[in-house]
Design a protein around this nucleic acid. Structure first.
Lengths: 110, 110
DNA sequence: TTGCGTTATACTTTAAGTTAGATAACGCAA
DNA sequence: TTGCGTTATCTAACTTAAAGTATAACGCAA
């Protein structure tokens, strides 16, 4: 039978989801590439969707998570703000605690 | 800003999801009505979908959660097995612990 | 044997979300 | 001033999960 407790967590705001597994992965790829387009390709996600996610995060957080600039030397740049970096760390900590919770829980059905 | 930790949990098997919020609600409505059709109407869910959910649960649990019988006095009957009742209680306990976890967690971002 | 309300199942249609494709705007560097 | 690669945005096409529609099978009761 092999019953396995599972789940997922995220952070909401009044306007909707703010931070979750997909967004975290996207932010990390932005951090690595410096480009929203490259990050979306690595995520195998359309540019439109990742742009929407980032823009939503920026609005919902009240303070920019990612700084987006178009034009210039390399065509443009996408960069995490210090606040964005803090947000990643905070969510990862939350998820770590949740994974511990999941691991510790034993369903009593046999 | 009002950041609110949120999440959901469920129970998986090797064949896929076995128990979660929607299924629990469906099981409780079956318990109350004795009918899969009436339960689906109360859930505002198509009969086909609820039938599929119940059938999957029965298969994935290895042991019936809901007993389905067609024909007879009232056209047919849907009834939780004792094992099904235990499954409900077990999941609710799991969820209670999870809600406690969520409530206790304070994100450190301000 | 007929009617009833349910379970059981196939097929079609709808709706929502996602992606694709195209194009404008931008600003540095050559 | 031109070219480049990116951000930004619109519209159309596609995909897929869900619901709708229809019908068969069942077994008790009248």
């Amino acid at each position: 039978m092999n019953l396995k407790p599972n789940g997922r967590i995220w952070i909401d705001t009044d306007q909707g989801a703010f931070m979750g597994y997909g967004r975290i992965e996207l932010l990390e790829k932005i951090q690595q590439t410096g480009s929203l387009r490259k990050a979306s390709i690595e995520m195998e996600m359309s540019y439109q969707k990742s742009w929407k996610l980032v823009t939503q995060m920026n609005i919902r957080a009240g303070e920019p998570i990612v700084s987006l600039k178009k034009g210039g030397k390399n065509g443009g740049i996408a960069q995490l703000t210090p606040f964005g970096e803090k947000a990643i760390l905070s969510f990862k900590e939350f998820d770590h605690a949740f994974q511990q919770f999941l691991k510790s829980y034993k369903p009593n059905l046999e």
